[in-house]
């Protein structure tokens, strides 16, 4: 019990640090693409600390005020439900309490909380963003869960641990090679999941100031910020576990997640932004058709 508690705390903190660090890396890289000097690598830590230190002086209602906590809980929850390093009994954290299905559905927890908070703020822009976000989410979840279900059917299990262990013994056993089309689909959905171009319709700079968190500031925002960082790391680990053979050690975990994190960074800057219905339709059809290829392979 104590070990579990310690592991949970350390994992969460580790994920927070790692997530902020990755954010810093991305800012640095983006800056150099733009040819700017850009912020420091540690800028995100400084931002978070600044936000946390500032007092929130107003709120708009109970849901508004609980939303950042929902967000944080959603992020940490997903992280804890995914086994981090294969075979490490401590770092499996809470993954004994549910399989892949639980993770899939728990991913909605934070989003729903956030959306409710945005709704309670009474700001129309926040809700416009939520409506777009939910729509896009419903679209990419279709193809992502399709990919996951194909995996589950192909490997005969919903357990993430079993999925990881099924990929051991050589790089060709990774699902990225066994289910290339499903993986491709999942990688496409990785972009809207991380709200990058061409799918960044939720935060959509210039259109709706900053999306759902329009009304949030200071300490509220710091909670959201941390939640998002942790959630991002959790998703990275999940993808690594599902498609890239899992992580047998710290080094492989860091390398794989880092590379995965870099992927949208190099893909998205070349795209303009989709309109909402374009994004939705794209996500309904393109990745799902990719999954269908693997589905047919599995069934036949």
């Amino acid at each position: 019990m104590t070990r579990l508690l310690v592991s949970v705390i350390l994992t969460s903190l580790g994920a927070l640090v790692y997530g902020l660090l990755l954010g810093g890396v991305s800012r640095v890289i983006t800056a150099s693409i733009h040819g700017r000097i850009g912020p420091r690598l540690t800028q995100n830590f400084i931002d978070l600390w600044k936000l946390f230190r500032k007092e929130s002086s107003i709120h708009h209602g109970t849901m508004f005020w609980m939303a950042p906590m929902f967000r944080l809980t959603g992020g940490i929850g997903v992280l804890l439900l995914v086994p981090i390093i294969a075979g490490n009994s401590v770092l499996t954290n809470m993954s004994f309490s549910g399989d892949l299905l639980l993770v899939l559905y728990f991913m909605f927890f934070g989003c729903l909380g956030m959306a409710l908070g945005a709704g309670d703020s009474g700001h129309p822009y926040a809700v416009v963003a939520v409506s777009r976000g939910l729509l896009q989410m419903s679209a990419y979840e279709l193809s992502f869960s399709a990919a996951v279900l194909v995996l589950a059917l192909g490997l005969g299990t919903f357990s993430i641990e079993n999925i990881v262990s099924a990929q051991q013994g050589g790089i060709l056993n990774w699902n990225v090679f066994r289910f290339p089309f499903a993986t491709a689909a999942a990688l496409i959905t990785f972009l809207p999941m991380n709200m990058t171009y061409p799918f960044n319709i939720v935060l959509a700079p210039q259109e709706i100031p900053i999306g759902p968190p329009t009304e949030y500031s200071s300490r509220f925002l710091s909670f959201m910020f941390s939640g998002r960082a942790i959630f991002g790391v959790a998703k990275l680990i999940l993808f690594v576990n599902l498609f890239f053979g899992g992580a047998g050690s710290w080094s492989s975990l860091l390398i794989k997640t880092f590379l995965l994190y870099m992927y949208p960074l190099f893909v998205s800057p070349v795209f303009p932004r989709f309109r909402t219905e374009q994004s939705v339709r794209f996500l309904w059809f393109v990745p799902t058709s990719l999954v269908a290829v693997d589905l047919l392979r599995v069934i036949l």
Partner: peptide, 10 residues
């Protein structure tokens, strides 16, 4: 045989 779920611990 496919998976597991423990509502209480979740």
């Amino acid at each position: 045989s496919l998976g597991y779920w423990d509502a209480w611990s979740v």
